[in-house]
């Protein structure tokens, strides 16, 4: 395993099993995967940026409630933003948007991430790791949503705000509707995790 300047950062979803359950239930379309993945990534980056300041000003006993409060505020701000720019996606995601406050990705960041950090790691290198994890989460959430929508409904519909609501019809009808349900989500993610392990083994990488 490589450490030091170039630590191996496993994908939080496929390697760390972070946020697997909510994604299986809610990321059934490209739009949902995009909004959920982006929300989790933005909230975790914002949390990671605010944590050093919080550590400097708040004593240990107040740190946990304060960080949870900040996390809740970020999640609600994001929910409001989505309600404004993509109301139907926002309503479709329902409680999953405010739940970004305690979503595994936020909790994962609050606990210090998956990759063990070395003492000499600077704030910048820590932030780079967080950014890589956030990007990894976003991309996999987006991919899961896209694959489920394409296979489940035979379409790829872009949210109105991002691509003017472009709609790509891949097949007539729904080729594999099961994949769009939570049950299909679990099965797809389970298989993706197994595939990720095979790829890691071939690349001689190990999840820390």
């Amino acid at each position: 395993m490589k450490t030091g300047k170039d630590p191996f950062v496993p994908n939080p979803i496929l390697g760390g099993l972070v946020g697997v359950f909510p994604l299986a239930a809610a990321a059934y379309s490209l739009a949902n995967g995009l909004v959920l993945g982006l929300g989790a990534a933005l909230c975790s980056i914002a949390l990671a940026s605010l944590m050093p300041a919080l550590r400097a000003i708040a004593p240990d006993r107040l740190r946990a409630p304060l960080s949870l409060g900040i996390s809740a505020a970020l999640a609600l701000l994001y929910s409001d933003l989505i309600a404004l720019v993509a109301p139907v996606t926002g309503i479709g995601l329902g409680v999953y948007l405010p739940l970004l406050a305690v979503n595994s990705m936020s909790m994962h960041i609050l606990r210090g991430g998956h990759t063990p950090l070395l003492k000499e790691d600077s704030a910048t290198s820590r932030m780079i790791i967080v950014l890589r994890e956030a990007m990894g989460f976003f991309l996999v959430a987006l991919l899961i949503g896209a694959v489920r929508e394409a296979a489940g409904f035979g379409t790829l519909v872009f949210p109105a705000v991002f691509a003017n609501g472009a709609r790509l019809v891949l097949t007539k009808g729904a080729p594999l509707l099961l994949l769009a349900s939570p049950a299909g989500g679990f099965i797809l993610i389970g298989c993706s995790v197994a595939l990720y392990r095979v790829i890691l083994r071939k690349a001689a990488r190990r999840i820390p």
Binding site: I57, A58, P59, L62, P65, L66, G69, I70, A73, L76, L77, D80, L81, A83, L84
Partner: peptide, 24 residues
């Protein structure tokens, strides 16, 4: 002082949220 600082942070966040909610 620590408690007041924490309350101030949360108060600021509340104000931010209320403003965002009103705008939305």
């Amino acid at each position: 002082v620590e408690n007041l600082a924490a309350a101030a942070i949360m108060g600021f966040l509340s104000l931010l949220l209320v403003t965002a909610i009103l705008l939305t």
